[in-house]
Design a protein around this nucleic acid. Sequence first.
RNA 1: GGCGGCGUAGCCAAGCGGCUAAGGCACUGGUCUGCAAAACCAUGAUUCAGCGGUUCAAAUCCGCUCGCCGCCUCCA
Length: 489
Amino acid sequence: MSVKIYNTLTRKKETFQPLEAGHIKLYVCGITSYDYCHIGHARSALAFDMIVRYFRYLGNKVTYIRNFTDIDDKIIVRANEQNTTTEELANRFIDEFYVDMDQLGVDRPTLEPKATEHIQEMIDLISELIEKNMAYPAGGDVYYSVNNFADYGKLSGRNLEDMQAGARIRINDNKNNPMDFVLWKASKPGEPSWESPWGPGRPGWHIECSAMSRKYLGDTFDIHGGGQDLIFPHHENELAQSEGANSKPFVNMWIHHGFVTIRDEKMSKSLGNFLTIRDILKHYHPEVLRFFIFSTQYRNPLDFSEKAMQDAMAGLDRLYECVAAIESLPTDCVADAPSIVTDKDRKKLESMEDRFQKAMDNDFNTAKAQGVFFETVKVLNKIQRQLPGKPAREDYELLSQSVSTMKKLASIMGILTENAADYLQAKKTDMLADTNITEEEIQDFIRKRNQARQDKDWATSDAIRDKLLDLNIELKDGPEGTGWTVKRS
RNA sequence: GGCGGCGUAGCCAAGCGGCUAAGGCACUGGUCUGCAAAACCAUGAUUCAGCGGUUCAAAUCCGCUCGCCGCCUCCA
């Protein structure tokens, strides 16, 4: 395996080498559970879903841990607003998260630990840090002492002097250094709290990931992932905690994906410009969203717009239409008829999987990989069109083999997973629901029009066609009769 | 101010020192058609924000300039 991955820690693409050959250990920061998920969350889940599927496709075992943050300030505030408990609120949105993930067809990680179920592990870790003089209790809180960790800032490329020069650090008298961050927070009255050696309180945000990754993946593991906004402070602090406590390298490879933007602005709850996953799935098939998200490499920003989604839909339809056409080819072929496929085209088809792998090996370049599919479709369409009524068995097999390979590879991105004919039919039915006409009525018009066409009454024929077009129904005359589609608006 | 990233055809997007600068969408032309539509096929950058430099060779490396974005506060 020679997958190259951009490592945030070294700011370079590196050849990935798991610690244990054939077994990859991956930890990804999941959601803070207090609201519905937006497309940005979808991108995160989908990016790592794709990465895990690719590693498995290459024959690796992958242990994939993705946590739920089910206790933090935002959850407490929101629970109070809704007059409920943090537990109820967090669990409710975890359930909603699963609804979205299932709709998107995201595979479940190996394990999805919750912060509140690992309080003891966090307390143990904090105690170790205090013993090692990497942390100190103060006024019921416990803080991490950044001055005692020489490498602090190595992930995000910052240094303490520069950061302190920035004036946006809150003054907190309990801290020795303004950059020290909280490991354990003394609870205020009415807040959820757990007993600890430092009094009742709750964990700081970063400590859960250090504690849970250590429990499930060990002191050092292969890959840690998340959104680019987590690099600082979250991952920087996790790294400081884990290496501070374990005195071993925490993670070999840090993967951070880019944001989803709207009109080139980051989508976020504070800006109020976010769209939830279910908003999107109301209007688009899940595979359209997947196709859209994988149309650029995972580290680049991805700008959401209706136009972009329409483009994605058109592209996905093109793939499905090709698959459907080849899958509906008549199966009676001539065993020893000569092939009509040129050597160049045959090579193109036979090299598809290699070219796909080459793209994916290069830091999971799904945009390039999609390009491989389209190149394949172009060749497939061309051959399929030239095929005689009874094609050579050799050619038939080349086409169906290519289609099944393409479907296998596309499933790594979670596209082309449906039966192509069903997908296209369902789409038609869905679109028909948005019009003011039924299938029976359309068939009726088509019969009348065909009669007119037979009589060479073009005026009537065209009038019917225009009438249907007004209703967003487009007719397609072909050798096997007249078909129709709902026009894309 | 510090750190990181980006700027490639109308739009989206690959490319990471050297084969003809992938691919998608749109446009245009062709096949098909009674005419259309759909589908399919074909077509577009002597050039990669600008200016310098390194090199036999640069969109790709280095420097500067301009523009955009993200992080530095909760955030996928």
